Deep mutational scan, measured.
Amino acid sequence: KRPMNAFMVWARIHRPALAKANPAANNAEISVQLGLEWNKLSEEQKKPYYDEAQKIKEKHREEFPGW
């Protein structure tokens, strides 16, 4: 399985609240909304998620060399 990128790290945190706020929305609609919200963030706001994604990527590389 591929390691999460910065957007996926961010979305994992924000998806539950968005789903709760929009109970009639299906998963595809929630994903679209998450994408729109992510694109509104500044690079500075995204930086912690890029940092976390890098850590996940490095850990994945250690656990699965050659993947």
Rank of each mutant, 00 (worst) to 15 (best):
K40V: 03
N26F: 02
A53M: 08
A53T: 04
K40F: 03
N22G: 01
A17P: 05
K57P: 14
Q45G: 05
G66Q: 06
E43R: 07
E29G: 01
A25W: 15
E43H: 12
K40G: 06
N22M: 09
A6G: 08
A28W: 06
P23W: 01
E43D: 11
W67N: 15
Q45D: 06
W38K: 00
K57D: 11
N26C: 09
K20L: 11
I56K: 11
P16E: 12
E43P: 14
A53R: 03
A19P: 01
L36M: 12
E58T: 15
F7P: 02
W38S: 00
N26I: 05
H14V: 06
K55Y: 09
A11Q: 06
A11C: 09
I30H: 03
F64H: 14
N26A: 11
P16Q: 09
F64W: 12
S42C: 03
R15A: 09
V32N: 15
K1G: 09
L34I: 03
P3I: 08
N39Y: 02
A21C: 00
E52F: 08
A17F: 09
H14P: 01
D51N: 10
K40P: 00
K55V: 06
E43W: 06
E29D: 13
K47V: 08
P3C: 08
K40Q: 08
S31D: 13
E52D: 04
L18F: 14
A28R: 08
P16V: 10
L18N: 00
K47M: 13
V9I: 12
E43T: 10
A17S: 12
W67F: 11
E44T: 07
L18C: 05
A11N: 03
P16F: 04
E63Q: 06
R2G: 15
M4V: 08
Q33L: 14
E37Q: 07
P23R: 03
G35N: 15
H60C: 14
G66N: 10
F7T: 00
K46I: 03
E63N: 15
W10E: 04
N27Y: 12
A25T: 03
N5W: 05
E58L: 10
K55G: 09
M8K: 14
S31M: 08
A21P: 02
E63T: 12
K47G: 05
N5R: 02
S42A: 05
A53I: 03
A19R: 13
F7Q: 07
P16A: 07
L36K: 14
Y49P: 01
E58P: 08
F7S: 02
Q54E: 09
E52M: 11
W67E: 15
A21R: 12
N22Y: 02
A17T: 08
K59V: 12
Q54Y: 02
N26K: 06
L41K: 01
R2I: 01
E37V: 05
Q54K: 12
N26T: 11
Y49S: 00
K1L: 04
N26W: 03
N39F: 07
N22E: 03
E58Q: 09
P65T: 08
V9N: 08
E37G: 04
H60N: 15
N39D: 12
I30P: 03
S42E: 03
A28H: 06
E52P: 00
L36Y: 11
K1T: 11
A11M: 02
G35R: 15
N39Q: 12
